[in-house]
């Protein structure tokens, strides 16, 4: 942190403008979507499917504008903190991105390779991203969890998670 705190705080303020932008964009999407609906006037439904989306879009846009003003005036939302959360250091993308990677890997693998494999990848990858370095132990735990949940869901709850590549073996 060599730069002065004002620059840092201004940058933080600016990132929150992204929230206002998101709200505004969401409002716009809701508006355009509702506007595109064709609704013949109906006596039995005078409100129609458009009214509520229009109100929601209005709410979102008003919030977006007010939030932008609030941020520009120096307001900022309070980040949520507690014992496991150390707000002293900035967002640690080196942890978050691999974590998201493990999550995406699971989405891509689950239907093809099956839950046992994709779940193992998910858990192992997440532990690794979060700083676990006992590769073998973590791997065994991941595999055990996936197999246990697979059979637990099948036998206990009657939910058949996809077996995927291991079909016939499991």
């Amino acid at each position: 942190m060599s730069s002065s705190p004002t620059v840092a705080s201004r940058l933080k303020g600016r990132s929150e403008l992204g929230v206002a932008l998101l709200l505004g964009a969401a409002g716009l999407v809701v508006f355009l979507d509702a506007n595109g609906l064709a609704t013949p006037y109906s006596r039995s439904d005078p409100v129609g499917p458009k009214t509520v989306p229009f109100i929601v879009a209005g709410l979102l846009v008003i919030c977006a504008v007010l939030l932008a003003l609030n941020v520009l005036r120096g307001g900022s939302g309070e980040a949520e903190g507690w014992e496991d959360v150390d707000l002293a250091h900035p967002v640690d993308w080196k942890t978050v991105l691999p974590l998201v990677g493990a999550f995406v890997a699971n989405i891509l693998l689950i239907d093809w390779a099956g839950w046992v494999i994709s779940g193992t990848v998910l858990f192992w990858g997440s532990v690794w991203a979060l700083g676990g370095r006992h590769y073998v132990r973590d791997g065994l735990i991941s595999l055990a969890l996936s197999i246990l949940t697979f059979y637990g869901f099948f036998l206990g709850l009657g939910i058949a998670l996809p077996a995927g590549l291991l079909e016939g073996i499991l």
């Binding site: 949520e80 903190g81 014992e83 496991d84 959360v85 150390d86 707000l87 250091h89 967002v91 640690d92 993308w93 942890t95 978050v96 974590l99 998201v100 991203a129 979060l130 700083g131």
Partner: peptide, 10 residues
């Protein structure tokens, strides 16, 4: 989980 991961106390 994502939020804590971003600020995990070491």
């Amino acid at each position: 989980a994502l939020w804590v991961a971003a600020h995990l106390r070491r």
